[in-house]
């Protein structure tokens, strides 16, 4: 990728990817909560963009876009508290997805499921630390089920995108 992509093209592409992931964050903010009693149940739409980047480019670009998205979406739609939750989820899930991708043991769907579940895990861990309440960990039971289901959905969408949006072609311009 490095050889056939100049700095300008790379900046434009990553800017576009960041804008897309922010748009997906916004769509997710607009969606009503599915089950209000347990916070954190969501589709994880921005992960579709991150998953695409992870598979089509490099973990460095995926991390760059993910961190930028977290910072901007917390400024736009959240607060300082939501920044720490999002950051923990994003860092943990991207690390796990990257490592699992490298093992080549799972397809995009398995990687995405692991990403969804560990995103929730990161947020629950931060909540346990910030509130000093280990009982919050019980949420993980529900969140693992919902994270798995949304991970399957995002993984299937991501796999479809990777097939239909041939990154090798359109990134050479």
């Amino acid at each position: 990728m490095k050889n056939n992509m100049t700095a300008t093209k790379r900046a434009a592409f990553l800017g576009l990817a960041t804008a897309l992931s922010l748009l997906l964050s916004y769509v997710e903010v607009l969606m009503p909560p599915l089950y209000a009693a347990v916070p954190g149940i969501k589709l994880g739409l921005p992960n579709m963009a991150i998953l695409y980047l992870l598979y089509s480019t490099d973990v460095r670009y995926a991390a760059l876009v993910s961190l930028t998205r977290v910072a901007i979406s917390s400024l736009l739609f959240g607060n300082v508290m939501s920044l720490s939750y999002s950051l923990a989820g994003a860092v943990l899930s991207l690390s796990v997805m990257w490592l699992l991708k490298k093992t080549k043991f799972f397809s995009e769907v398995g990687v995405s499921v692991a990403g969804g579940v560990t995103h929730n895990l990161g947020q629950v861990l931060v909540a346990v630390l910030l509130l000093d309440t280990p009982q919050i960990a019980y949420y993980m039971i529900v969140l693992t089920v919902t994270g798995t289901i949304s991970g399957i959905f995002i993984g299937l969408c991501g796999a479809f995108l990777l097939k239909r949006l041939p990154h090798e072609k359109f990134m050479r311009f």
Binding site: S107, V109, G110, V117, I141
Partner: peptide, 19 residues
């Protein structure tokens, strides 16, 4: 791809079983 999808399904089944 088929082998990986099989691993995916196994992984998902284990997660849901644990829950």
């Amino acid at each position: 791809t088929t082998v990986r999808r099989r691993h995916d399904i196994l992984f998902i089944a284990v997660l849901l079983f644990l829950c």
